[in-house]
C-alpha cells in the first residue's frame, strides 16, 4: 500500500504543480523543501503548582544548591521518530487526535523547537502563520498591526504599504483605534488573521483555528489561504476540520501519539482515520 499511496501523491504533486505553476524561483518541480529525519522532540513543562513555586525563596535556593528534584517539571516526549520528505508544491495536511504532536511537529519544522534527536532540513525559513503571541491586548489595533508586522520581520516600508490592506481585510473599521481588549472575540480573531496573513512565505505552516469569525469572514480567509498556498512552495496545515484538509491538501500525514501512523493521499488516509 505504501507504493500505491506514494504513486498517488506523486500524481497529485504533479497536478498541483501544473495548477500552481506560478512565480516560483528556480526550484525544480518536486524538489524537496522540507526533510524531517528521525525527529524526536522532548520539551519541559512546568506544572501548574504555582503556589509551591512562588514566595518561598528559601526553597528555590535549596533546589539550586541541591541541583535536584524540581517537582513541578515534567518532560514531554511529544514527537517520537518522525521522518518524511515534503516536496515543492506539496500541501500537506497533518491530522491526529489532541496531543498527538501535530503542533509540536509544526514548530520543529519552523525551527522554533530544538530537536532532541534527529533533524529537520529546510529550504529557506519556514514560518508559522500566526502573530497572536506578539500582540498586546491593552494596545490599539493600529499599534498592534505595526507591532505584529515588525514581529514577523517586515520593514517599515512594507508595513506602510500593507497597513491599509490589513485594516480593510480585517473589516474592523474605526475599531482599529480602540484597544484590542475592547474587541469582541470575532473581531480580535479577524485582526490577528489579517496581520498574520499579510506576509508571503516560502514554506508556510498553518496551525488550525482558521475558521474564525462570521461566515463572511470564514469565506474570505479561506480564499486568502488558497492564495497564500499558491504563492508558497510548500504548505503544512494542521486542522481538526477534515473537510478543510480534503479541500486543500494533496497529501495527509496521520500522527498518532507522536509517530506517523499513515502518510499518503487524502482520500486513503482520511478514510482510514475515520474508520
Amino acid at each position: 500500500m505504501a507504493e500505491l499511496t506514494k504513486e498517488l501523491s506523486q500524481m497529485a504533486n504533479e497536478q498541483a504543480i501544473q495548477a500552481d505553476a506560478a512565480p516560483q524561483d528556480a526550484a525544480e518541480p518536486g524538489a524537496p523543501t522540507v526533510i524531517v529525519d528521525d525527529l524526536h522532540i522532548v520539551y519541559r513543562v512546568f506544572g501548574a503548582a504555582s503556589e509551591a513555586e512562588k514566595g518561598n525563596a528559601a526553597n528555590a535556593l535549596m533546589r539550586i544548591i541541591r541541583r535536584q528534584g524540581r517537582p513541578q517539571m515534567k518532560e514531554v516526549h511529544a514527537v517520537k521518530g518522525v521522518s518524511f520528505i515534503a516536496r515543492h508544491g506539496d500541501a500537506i495536511g497533518i491530522i491526529g487526535r489532541n496531543g498527538s504532536g501535530k503542533s509540536t511537529l509544526l514548530r520543529a519544522i519552523a525551527g522554533l523547537l530544538p530537536p532532541h534527536k534527529g533533524s529537520v532540513y529546510t529550504d529557506g525559513q519556514p514560518s508559522l502563520l500566526g502573530v497572536n503571541a506578539a500582540l498586546m491586548k491593552e494596545l490599539t489595533g493600529e499599534r498592534n498591526i505595526v507591532l505584529g508586522c515588525y514581529a514577523m520581520g517586515m520593514t517599515p516600508a512594507q508595513v506602510r504599504e500593507r497597513y491599509d490592506e490589513i485594516v480593510e481585510f480585517s473589516g474592523i473599521g474605526e475599531f482599529v483605534q480602540f484597544p484590542m481588549s475592547t474587541y469582541s472575540s470575532g473581531m480580535g480573531a479577524r485582526l490577528r488573521f489579517a496581520i498574520a496573513s499579510a506576509k508571503a512565505h516560502n514554506v508556510l505552516l498553518i496551525d488550525e483555528a482558521l475558521a474564525t469569525g462570521d461566515r463572511d469572514f470564514k469565506r474570505k480567509s479561506q480564499e486568502r489561504i488558497h492564495q497564500m498556498r499558491k504563492e508558497a512552495g510548500t504548505v503544512f496545515l494542521v486542522a481538526h476540520n477534515l473537510d478543510v484538509i480534503e479541500e486543500t491538501c494533496n497529501r495527509v500525514i496521520w500522527l498518532h501519539k507522536g509517530q506517523i501512523k499513515m502518510d499518503g493521499d487524502p482520500t486513503t488516509v482520511l478514510a482510514a482515520y475515520n474508520a
Binding site: 521522518s83 518524511f84 520528505i85 496521520w254 501519539k257 509517530q259 506517523i260 501512523k261
Partner: peptide, 16 residues
C-alpha cells in the same frame, strides 16, 4: 504507545 504505530508505514522518506 510506541508499539502502536510500528505497524504504520512510517519513515516514508527512507523507503523512497
Amino acid at each position: 504507545a510506541v508499539a502502536d504505530s510500528r505497524a504504520g508505514d512510517r519513515a516514508r522518506g527512507s523507503s523512497q
